[in-house]
């Protein structure tokens, strides 16, 4: 399959960084996922081919890393940390609130494909808990109210 020019460029740059080809695998998978939303069978086959690896090898690698997925997520993937520091500051409550607000459970996608929700482990924002990530963007010291605002804002902007 054809990848976009910018992804090809990224792959090309990555390839220069390592003396061993396979080292680029995890970044390649993550960058491909960033662009296509998830790692489809076609993407996996293509990357396996380029890396001289078996599909099984690549699938084994993908399934090890929690950020890599083989099914689509929402355009905005809400990752709510409920680990100890966030829990102590209400992360669980925030997660429950998000479930109600979006009407979906953990690992699910809203029918319009706009949001998906995931309870995640520590994302490294413990001093600013509770924290979430929307795709790669951090949002710190959230309250249910501020989460509502954030979701509403995303909905508003994406409708335009």
């Amino acid at each position: 399959m054809q990848f976009s020019t910018q992804l090809e460029e990224k792959f090309h740059r990555l390839a220069q960084h390592y003396p061993v080809k396979r080292s680029a695998l995890v970044p390649m998978l993550l960058f491909a996922q960033d662009e296509y939303g998830f790692l489809s069978k076609e993407i996996i086959a293509e990357i396996s081919r380029r890396m001289d690896l078996t599909v099984l090898d690549v699938e084994g690698t993908i399934s090890y890393y929690s950020m890599l997925r083989t099914k689509p997520a929402g355009r905005f993937h809400l990752q709510i940390c409920t680990n100890i520091s966030c829990m102590l500051r209400g992360g669980d409550k925030l997660f429950d609130h998000a479930k109600t607000k979006l009407g979906i459970g953990n690992g699910e996608v809203t029918p319009d494909g706009l949001f998906s929700l995931e309870e995640v482990e520590c994302i490294g924002a413990c001093a600013w808990a509770p924290a979430i990530q929307v795709n790669y963007d951090f949002h710190h010291e959230l309250t249910p109210e501020r989460l509502d605002q954030l979701i509403d804002e995303i909905q508003r902007v994406s409708r335009v």
Partner: peptide
């Protein structure tokens, strides 16, 4: 090969 992680780890065919 091995797929998944932790208690969900299992052997998978090619």
């Amino acid at each position: 090969g091995v797929v998944n992680r932790g208690a969900r780890s299992e052997i998978a065919p090619n």
